[in-house]
Every structure is written in structure tokens, then in C-alpha cells.
Simulated assay, not measured.
Amino acid sequence: MSNASQNLPDDPAFLKAMIAALQAENAKMSATLRAHDQLIQDLRLRIARLRKQAFGKSSEKIEREIQQLELALEDLLIAASENSTKPIDEDDEIDPHASTDPSREKVIRRRPRVSEKAVRERREIDPGRVCPDCGGELRLVGEDASEILDMIAAQMKVIEVARLKKSCRCCEKMVQLPAPSRPIPGSMAGAGLLAYILVAKFDDHLPLYRLNEIFARMGADIPDSTLVDWCGRAMRVLQPLIERIEAAIMGSDLLHADDTPIRVLDRSLRDKGLGKGVKKGRIWAYVRDQRPWAGVAPPGAVYYFAPDWKEEHVHRHLEQTSGILQADGYKGYGKLYDPGGDGTSRFREAACWAHLWTP
């Protein structure tokens, strides 16, 4: 018998009052959960409607509202999970002392997918070589294995490079190896740190001032101005690699093309008193991906920025390219499919099925 049951009073009337209070609290919690579930469903429906409305012609206002709704939905899902039972799947270790009440619904969620290339560590929990009951020798008959996904925190490390000087005992010549090259000459930044900064800035969209705060917690105060300089000079170091990737992708005979709007600050508009000086630019993406049909060329993408949506930008991007172009119905691609003087066209059109109109 548990200690909780031993401490219960013997008065039946008092016990009934406790049961009634617990039932009322349970009903209140159930109503709260039902309200949360209803609100979650409403938010999901609104997000779906907004996405359908935004399909085809995008709207910045709609996109911002979707993002805000998704943030609110995440908060509600977290709050709901606090009051729900622990999700259990077939590979989880089950606590034998946990509640077995069948009325409590178990929520089964998809297990995280971890790449086979992920670093793995094996930890063995060994009961020893001697039986704790009789003292006899234990022999291995099997094992029960489970997995825990953990994170090893990033660590800022100062690598001291010491170049030893040595002199020859015979000719007195001084011998010292040259210093290893650095991505940015004269800078403290190592290759790994620069890669971390570039990925955080341009892929994870993390502002540099937040990186400054993260690095400060690790023991390194790197000013924002220094981070800006490192980003610019690192991009200069990567420029030859960028150019080789661009030449390889744009030299393909089959490309996928698409564009997306992006907000651009234009000081000239603000100086003329035209709003906040914000206009809509474009980023064009050209992709080579042969994986669906077991092609041998590695996948890759090239991005070009343009201040507007004029077709001249597309023609300039593709002036050295020919073959098959799969894209949407943007009118700027039309002239690329027109026959030239010899009756042939530089590109064959592979229309995008996602933009096919159906009644």
C-alpha cells in the first residue's frame, strides 16, 4: 500500500468531498484541453486557408500572418503536451510503476530520424562478474539496447601554434617550419569558426549581434564589426569555389528554374519621400538535380539576385546555357523557347505540373 493511501482520512463524508473536488478539477482540466484542441484545429484551418490563398501570387502580409499563426500554434501544442500523457512507442523503455489506466490516451508520434553518418557512442551498463544473490560467476547471455539522442555543446577553442626553432650543431643553421596558412591572413579566425559563422548567418538567418552573445557565453568577445569583416573576407576566399559551382550548374543541359520575391531597401526611394524606401526584388534559383533518374552529376543550385522582375535578368543568367528548362509560366522564359534563325530553339520547355491549371 502506498503512503498516499495510508494518509487518507477515514471519514466517508470527507472522502466524498475530496472525490467531488477532484472530479470538478478533472472536468475543468478536460474542458481546458478541449478548448486548446479546438483552438489548435482552428489555427490549422486558418493556416491552410492562408496558404491556399497565397499559392501562385505570394503576399508578404499573408506570409507574416502565417508565421505568427505558426508560432502561436507551437505555443499551444507545447501547452497541450504538458497536460497529456507521455508518448510511448515500441522502442521506448516503459516505467513499470507508471499508470496503466486504459482511459488515458497514449499519443504515438513519429520517432526522430537520425542519419547513419551521425556520430555514435556505445555505453555499456554492466552488472559485474559476480551474482549479487549467491556470489556465483555471471555469464553474458544477451543485452537490451536502446538509443538516446543527445547534443554535445559547441566549444570555443584557442589553438596555440608554436613553431619550434632549432639550430644545427654542425653548421649552426637555424631551422623553422613556416606558419600554416589561414583562411583570412592575419586573422584569428579558423576555418571551422568561419564555417560556423557563415552557416549561422546565411542559412540559419541568425543576426551577428546574437552570434556575438553566443560567443561571449563561450568565453570569446568578438565585436560585431569583426564578425562583419570576417563574413566579407570569408566570402572573398570562397569566391573561386562559388564560380566553379556556378560554371558546373549553369553548364548543365537540364535546369530547374524558379524565382521568389524579397524585400529590398532602396535609399533613393526613401530620399524621394516614397514610403519607407522598400521595394520588391527577386532571387532566381537554377537547380541541377539528376537524382530522381539516377543521374551521375551531383545536385547543386545557383542563386542570382535582381532588383526587379524584368525578363532581361533571366536572359542574362541563361545566355551561355541551353538544353531543357523546367519552370513555371513566367512570361520572361517565353522568348527562350522561340526558334532562332536556324529554326531551332536554345531551350525545350518542360512545364511545371504544379502550375497546371485545372477547372
Results as ranks from 00 to 15, higher is better:
R169D: 09
G192K: 15
A285W: 01
K117C: 03
R34Y: 03
K279W: 03
I152C: 04
K157I: 14
P298Y: 04
L194C: 09
G329L: 07
C170F: 04
A247Y: 04
K165P: 03
V302A: 11
V175L: 15
F55S: 11
A306N: 06
A248N: 12
S252A: 15
A153R: 14
R123S: 11
R210Q: 07
A35N: 14
I249D: 03
Y333L: 09
R244S: 08
D101R: 09
L318N: 05
A234Y: 06
D229S: 13
K272W: 06
T321R: 10
G341Y: 13
K173H: 15
E70A: 14
I19M: 11
H256Y: 13
D266R: 15
L50N: 14
R288F: 09
H317A: 02
L193N: 03
E243R: 08
A13H: 08
S58D: 04
R270C: 07
L50F: 14
I242V: 11
R109S: 12
K28M: 08
G251R: 07
T321L: 02
D271S: 10
R46W: 00
P359Y: 06
D101M: 07
A354I: 04
A31C: 01
R111P: 00
P185G: 13
R34T: 09
S103T: 14
D91G: 00
A27G: 01
P127V: 07
L39A: 10
C134G: 03
D95P: 03
W230L: 12
M235H: 04
D328E: 10
A200Q: 11
L8W: 04
R267F: 00
C231R: 03
A21F: 08
P185I: 13
T85H: 03
D91I: 04
W357T: 06
D126T: 13
D101W: 10
D224H: 09
L269Y: 03
P261I: 10
R282P: 01
R267I: 09
R113K: 12
L206E: 12
L274C: 06
S115C: 13
G343Y: 12
C170G: 02
A354Y: 02
C168K: 07
P240G: 06
L69V: 06
S252D: 08
R163L: 15
C231N: 02
A4G: 00
D144H: 12
A13D: 11
A21G: 10
E25D: 15
A247E: 15
E74K: 15
L274V: 07
D37Y: 03
A4K: 08
A54P: 01
Q155V: 12
V161A: 02
L336S: 09
Q53I: 05
A79Q: 15
P299D: 13
I108G: 01
V119H: 07
Q155N: 08
N3F: 04
K157M: 11
Q176L: 08
G329S: 13
A20W: 01
A17T: 06
R182C: 03
Q38G: 07
L227F: 10
K173Y: 10
D10E: 14
A189K: 03
P307H: 09
A154W: 00
E349L: 14
N3P: 00
E172G: 12
A247V: 02
A195W: 11
P299F: 14
D42S: 14
E137N: 10
I62F: 02
G219D: 06
R104Q: 14
K157R: 15
R110G: 08
P240R: 09
